[in-house]
Design a protein around this nucleic acid. Structure first.
Lengths: 111, 111
DNA sequence: AATCTATATGCTAATTTGATAATATAATCA
DNA sequence: TGATTATATTATCAAATTAGCATATAGATT
């Protein structure tokens, strides 16, 4: 019986888990400015169909993507663009970290 | 042999994974405005010592925390406050989602 | 009806992650 | 030195995640 605070951490952690996979990050970026069908993504993202389907389901369940069906084709898109408010700072943090490493490396040749 | 784009997604995913655990989120929040020793956190966060130690190591390796040692005591703190630029929008997204659910629920009584 | 296309689901094995307990290390203190 | 304290590491096992393949479903086409 977790208390409310623990429950909130659990919910946040689950949300983060849904993002924490290279293919899923690739999907979100691919859908950044457009919607796309599963078939299109299978080709473009070079992933196996059933695997992609499962990753899409995870992102939909997390509320990050929505889908609409047209005949047999299912189109996915980003449900709430606020997700990029999470992803952008991550890129910035990593970029910054990389810069810091490079600055250290720059001193290697000198002595 | 993954290409550069895939490598970047892998790096981002690994970073997200380091965040994606309730205890680790609890640690980061606990360290939001202060540093704390492992012993203090064992007591306050109600986690087992060896488990906490491992979670701290994961966060340090991810570059999210730093530590300094004073005699036998090790103090941890947030290394780069930019991490909160990632965590805050997550809270907002989840709050928003909850509000939307509540608005739906509000119509349940009416008919 | 039989086939084809697009997507989802189920199954299994491999890998990763996590919890717990035990042990190690290292500094301090008696 | 021996005991104590603080933290890290290791070992073991259970649980969760993932990949890949096979199958299911459902609509479209012949």
């Amino acid at each position: 019986m977790p208390n409310n605070e623990e429950l909130v951490f659990k919910i946040k952690a689950d949300f983060l888990k849904s993002l924490a996979h290279p293919i899923r990050l690739g999907i979100i970026e691919y859908l950044k400015n457009k919607e796309a069908s599963v078939g299109e993504m299978v080709k473009e993202l070079r992933v196996e169909q059933s695997g992609l389907s499962k990753h899409l389901a995870i992102l939909r369940q997390a509320g990050i993507l929505t889908s609409r069906q047209e005949k047999v084709t299912v189109y996915y898109s980003v449900r709430d663009r606020d997700i990029f408010h999470v992803l952008r700072p991550i890129a910035e943090i990593l970029r910054k970290k990389l810069n810091e490493s490079n600055e250290v490396l720059a001193h290697l040749g000198r002595v």
